[in-house]
Design a binder for these strands. Structure first.
Lengths: 246, 246
DNA sequence: CCAAAAGTGTTGCACTTACACCCATGA
DNA sequence: TCATGGGTGTAAGTGCAACACTTTTGG
């Protein structure tokens, strides 16, 4: 409290800040083939940070809600059917954008960040001409423009939490999936040692919202796996209850 | 935060929104005497919503960070030593503030909300002249201005989660406290049936970050209670680990 | 037949729950 | 000595980790 007192006094009669509000998306996807967690990056074509990678973002338009803006970015960059999206955090410290020239009454750049998880298989990147756009393995993300590395880190933390406590995995898996598919998804995001496969299995099945379709998936060698479907109705009563998948 | 050339060009008719950014605080406190969870409300003295209660808020000033603005509101309304504060959510849908006149190129009013928990005993309300300001029991909050009931509801949910998984209770308890004090705090926020007192006791003590000061608190009849202190060092290794107090 | 992938079972340990009971104080 | 609030103990049940084992497929 006390370190803020000084700031307060010096700002007593300072003018209100003028804002430009942008939305930046941390879009994750799981490359199930290679078991890697990916994040969508785009290349900048303007100053500042010309030719550096950054998170896909946009400025909010007149009459557009923040969430709509987030969906618009997504739709401009990828074509995807299944996704999960939620607001992440708002970054708005003065000086986070170099365009805020300190000399003038420069505008402030506020970033309301959103976090999304999309299905990798049917996410089509929209590469229109010059615009660089790519999935990057989260483990190998380069230096990003602005404070976007920080935003990404924040989103990564949120993703891991969400996965542990919410059924967002099912928004991004195919309609029917095997328990290994589900396990691989969790293992990829949370790290290899999050749980024994056998125990993960029994726990998930005991929860009772995975219904066996009776179908089998035969993929090369080995015993064919049962295909399950997420049963939203059976899950409903568990909503808000603390669920643990880990 | 950046503009993609193609999009910008193709949408000349959709102007960017112009923003005023405000910070609204959901400030909670626990009235330990009456076992009630309280929230701080202030009376509006301007249109719109003249003479209605609302959350304390302010517009962000030039050069001021969002968090600083949140601290400034707090400091203007109450004098308090111990508190916990974190960003809550950003509300920015068009139409959430009636001052956005639809006819003109009205500015948008964005609210970055913060959530705080302060120590009730030493929170001095600053009532300067006309300004209505009061603690309201969360269970009896009236109709608030703007979408502030929604923000409050959101903050209430966050408070309950935080309490279950983070040691924020200790930011708001006295330096030394009894286990009943702690239990009462939890019971007040989370509801009476969150845990048996005896089991709560043993769980908390087993976690190992409450150190017995050896002192006793004698409060009227009954056996005097041991006074404990939160041991931040002993807690450090548990940081990030999923803790359950409930 | 074997290797590979899916699926089942088992066992020990730790923790949770729901209580009953004991302890120290003021009146 | 009783009421009051603080504190301890315990037995049944539940959940989880670790690991061994069985089943079903392709080659």
């Amino acid at each position: 409290m006390h370190r803020h007192k000084k700031i307060t006094d010096s700002l007593k009669n300072s003018p209100l800040a003028d804002f430009k509000v942008g939305v930046d998306n941390v879009i994750f996807s799981v490359d199930t083939a290679q078991n890697r967690l990916m994040v969508l990056l785009v290349m900048r074509h303007d100053e500042p940070f010309l030719d550096q990678w950054c998170l896909p973002g946009t400025l909010v338009r007149h009459g557009e809600s923040l969430e709509d803006a987030a969906y618009r970015i997504l739709a401009e960059k990828i074509k995807v059917e299944n996704l999960y999206l939620e607001q992440l955090y708002t970054f708005g410290d003065p000086g986070r954008d170099p365009r805020e020239s300190p000399s003038s009454f420069g505008v402030r750049y506020l970033s309301v960040s959103y976090f999304a998880l999309v299905r990798f298989a049917d996410a089509q990147l929209i590469a229109n001409g010059v615009s660089g756009i790519a999935w990057y393995p989260v483990k190998q993300v380069p230096q990003l423009a602005f404070d976007h590395n920080e935003i990404l880190e924040y989103g990564y933390r949120r993703l891991r939490n969400k996965l542990e406590y919410s059924p967002i995995a099912f928004e991004v898996l195919p309609e029917v999936f095997t328990l290994s598919d589900l396990y691989q998804l969790y293992a990829t995001v949370l790290g290899e040692n999050f749980s024994d496969y056998s125990n993960f299995r029994t726990r998930l099945l005991k929860l009772g919202f995975l219904s066996d379709t009776g179908l089998k998936a035969s993929r090369g060698a080995g015993r064919p796996a049962s295909l399950y479907r997420f049963d939203a109705e059976a899950f409903a009563p568990l909503k808000d209850k603390p669920l643990v998948f880990i």
